[in-house]
Design a protein around this nucleic acid. Sequence first.
DNA 1: TAGATTGTTAATCGATTAACAATC
DNA 2: TAGATTGTTAATCGATTAACAATC
Lengths: 212, 212
Amino acid sequence: MSNANPISTQTLRRLPTYYDYLKSLPAEVKNISATSIARELRLNDVQVRKDLALVSGGGKPKVGYVVEHLIDDIGRYLRYDYVDRAVLAGAGNMGHALMCYEGFARYGLDIVTAFDNNAGVIGTYINGKRVLPIEEMGSICSKQDIKIGIITVPAAAAQDVCNIMVQSGIKAIWNFAAVKLNTPKGVIVQNEDLVASLAVLSRHLKQGGDEA
Amino acid sequence: MSNANPISTQTLRRLPTYYDYLKSLPAEVKNISATSIARELRLNDVQVRKDLALVSGGGKPKVGYVVEHLIDDIGRYLRYDYVDRAVLAGAGNMGHALMCYEGFARYGLDIVTAFDNNAGVIGTYINGKRVLPIEEMGSICSKQDIKIGIITVPAAAAQDVCNIMVQSGIKAIWNFAAVKLNTPKGVIVQNEDLVASLAVLSRHLKQGGDEA
DNA sequence: TAGATTGTTAATCGATTAACAATC
DNA sequence: TAGATTGTTAATCGATTAACAATC
C-alpha cells in the first residue's frame, strides 16, 4: 500500500455519477465523448476528462471513450464488486429507511445489523436484519470485521454512539445526525447534512427564486 | 426585495450547525467566542467570525458574542420561525422516513402530503399525512401555495417526477434520487447524494485508513 | 484531409487561512 | 493595564475553467 491516493474528494464524489450515467446508456452506445457526458450531467467537459483520466485508460480523439471500459474502470476503482459490511445505530425512521433501501447493494454496501437501546425494537427484524442491543456492537464488528458504522440516532446521542463505534473498531462513519462528531485520527466521518441542504432550498424561496 | 444575497452557499450551509450548537449550550452560558465555537465545531475561527458577521451584530473583544442574540439572528436569517410546506414524491422507504422525521419542524419544514403512483399505497396515511396519486400534485401545490418538492422515487422515475413538480409550481427540489435533474431557470435543486458519500467512506477503508 | 475530440498547461475563481491592527 | 478577542486586509490553497497544441 505504497501509493498515496491522488484523487480529490471532489472527483471521488463525481465518480458514482459517471458510473450511473454510463450504466444507464442503451447497449448500442459503444463510445461516448467527455463533451456529451459533461452536457448530460451539467459539468465542464475538461473536468470530466480530468476525472476520467485518473481512473481509466483515456479516450481517442474524435471517438471518445469506450463506455464499457469506463464502467469497468470506475466500478473497479470504487470497488463496487467488493461488499463492505456496515452496522447501523438507531433503528428509527431514518435507520429503517436505510436498512430497507435495496439500492446500496449495487454500490457495494451491505448493512448487516442494526443496534438500538430501545427494548421495544431490540430483537425485532428490519428487512430481515436483526436489531440488537448496542452492547453487542463491539463483538459483532470484530467477529464480522465490520468497518463502517451508520449513525441515525438523535443528535444528542450521536457522540456517545460514535465513541462506541470507534471502540468497536469502526473506521468509517456515515453520520445522519445533525452534529459534528469527534473522532480520533484514522476514523473518517461523512456527514449527511440534511439541515444544511434544507437551508439552501429555503433561502432560494425566501429570495423570490430568481437565480438558477 | 432589492438585495442580492451576499451569503455564500458554504456559509449558508454552516449556519444551521452554529444554530444547533448554540441552542445546545447550557442556559448559564451567556457569551461565547468565535474561537471556542470554532474549536468545538472544528472550523477555523476567522471563518466563524466572518460567517457570523454576515447575519448578526458582531461581538465584543475579550467577551465574544451574546449567545441569545446569535441564536435569534441566525434563526431569523434562516427563517426557522416561518414554516415552508413541502410535498414529497415516492412513498417508499426513504420517503416514509422523511415523512416520519419530526425534527424538520424545528427547521421550518412541514411535509404535508406524499404522492405515489402505486395503487397499493395511495389513500393510506403516513404519519397522519395522506398519500395521493401524483395527478393531484398540481392542484394541491397551487391550492396550498407549496414551493418545495422532495423526490424519493427510484432514479429512473426522478426526472419525470421533477418535470411534474416544475409544472406544479415547485421552485425548490430536494433530490434523493441518484441522478442529476434538469430544471428550468428559477428552480433550484439540492442533491442529497448518498452514493457520493458512500464512495468517500469506502475509499478510506480501501486505502487502509491512515489519514484523518 | 478536415475537424471533432483528447489531454495538458496556464489563468481564473472562490473559499479558507494567516497576519495584524483595533478594542474592550 | 494587559491580553483575549474581534474584524479586516492580504496571502494561500484547491478546484474549476479557458486556451491550445496534439491526434485519430
